[in-house]
Nucleic acid binder design. Structure first.
Lengths: 264, 264
DNA sequence: AGAAGGACCAGTGGTCCGTA
DNA sequence: AGAAGGACCAGTGGTCCGTA
């Protein structure tokens, strides 16, 4: 599992995140010296949330090889020492074509998918630590893995985000051509990330239909995908579609009915 | 998975357990009409814990075919309606030889192992319900399965008990000859159940040693055993033994150091 | 004393909703 | 408005310890 140069990268000066102490996940475990080792202290638990390390990311441009990507401004937040208690978030995603680097304060979809691979790498590290300690060994990306990632400095990884886009990553894994085509189409139409994300369900359900509707088996038979839990929504869509009840899931689901189902 | 006549049986008049409402585990699911369907109501949630159904068990003798097993007394608790708020527990286990039926207010080890098979049957039912509903499907005996078992009337099944003896069942699955021999030896020596239970660890660790110490793989490769979580203690013993550190586990473990390790 | 099991607890999967 | 993620919550795995 090679650790690319593009690993930590959270593009342009976004990652003003707190960055926890980095205790290297439990007494003995070694993170392995990935690019995350760059980051620094950060201060106590709750107090002194003052100082903030300005960079940590941007150590590599995602395009790999393009160098510093121009002086893509960076006016906010003022330079010097004190102040600036606002907790900077990751830049929002935009729909990008395969290979395209997002411009401005945005992140692209190749970067999104790259986060899934990072998580898997973290899982593999957690697994090998667990094995050598004789502890029970997770097979999926669990809370423990997210905690480990944080400690290792990958503060830009968090559970809600990763769970939110799992099915998009699934499509990317299972049918990259279809995934790429969808990205191009939605970019061209100027759709936002939410619309693209919704659109990822349909081709996945179609794949499940072809394979006997066993979405768990589909996830588990793919090495990269198998470490992710099948998202509730996708499971429900597959079930609804199989039952012929094409309507209803969106309204009957516990998710508040915000999701839009396969209607388009 | 045939349902034997000996299923519910918790021997002699022991099972004065409360017996919950038996809502058949969720709106639609069918328990399938096993012997558990015999039991009856039981009253509200917390109030009126008065009446108690006198039997429910003893519907079959474990020896199978021996009939009513004689009039093995039953003096306690007085017959009639009211009173008797004491929550009757299952009879304690004693070390029995294979095929031997426990006498008096005791349960034998064939019965213990039978409970593991019952739990697996319940899991299989829970799985098929989950599948037809398109919900996520447990692969192990989880809290959900214990809850289902209770609702189905198998009030004599509970998590602490089943977890306590898992490794004993494991030995029975993985090397029945060794298990049987151990039972005979401990019965002959007049040892109690606790001693027998402790003794089950050693041959299991030996099996693990022969198979590369992967106790998870060993559990998972056996159909009956694979539905059970590897007990923490067994995992620790395998790890300690593999590391050559034969001492220490009992004292360093979080289990309070009560367990006695492989010393004998 | 030896043993059965109610009930507790830390940490999980899941995702809402206050935030920017 | 669209989106990122801190933080909450119901139900889990695990087993202690008050009970009989």
């Amino acid at each position: 599992t090679p650790t690319h140069a593009l690993d930590a990268l959270s593009q342009e000066g976004l990652s003003e995140e707190p960055v926890q102490q980095k205790e290297a996940a439990g007494s003995g475990g070694g993170t392995g010296g990935g690019p995350w080792d760059v980051v620094a202290v950060g201060g106590g638990k709750k107090k002194q949330q003052q100082r903030r390390k300005k960079v940590q990311a941007r150590m590599a441009s995602f395009g790999d090889d393009e160098g510093t990507e121009g002086a893509d401004d960076e006016d906010e937040d003022g330079g010097g020492g004190g102040g600036s208690d606002h907790r900077q978030r990751e830049h929002p995603f935009i729909v990008t074509e395969p290979g395209e680097v997002a411009r401005g304060k945005k992140n692209g979809l190749d970067y999104l998918f790259h986060l899934y691979e990072q998580c898997r790498d973290f899982l593999i590290q957690v697994q090998s630590i667990a094995k050598e300690r004789g502890e029970k060994c997770p097979t999926k990306v669990t809370n423990q893995v997210f905690r480990y990632a944080k400690k290792a400095g990958a503060s830009y990884i968090n559970k809600p985000k990763m769970r939110h886009y799992v099915h998009c990553y699934a499509l990317h894994c299972l049918d990259e051509e279809a995934s790429d085509a969808l990205r191009r189409a939605f970019k061209e139409r100027g759709e936002n990330v939410g619309a693209w994300r919704q659109a990822c369900y349909k081709p996945l359900v179609a794949i499940a239909a072809r394979q006997g509707w066993d979405i768990d088996a589909i996830f588990n038979s793919h090495p990269q995908l198998s470490v992710w839990y099948v998202p509730t929504k996708l499971r429900q869509l597959c079930h609804a579609e199989r039952s012929g009840a094409v309507a209803g899931v969106a309204s009957s689901s516990a998710s508040g009915g915000a999701e839009h189902h396969l209607t388009f």
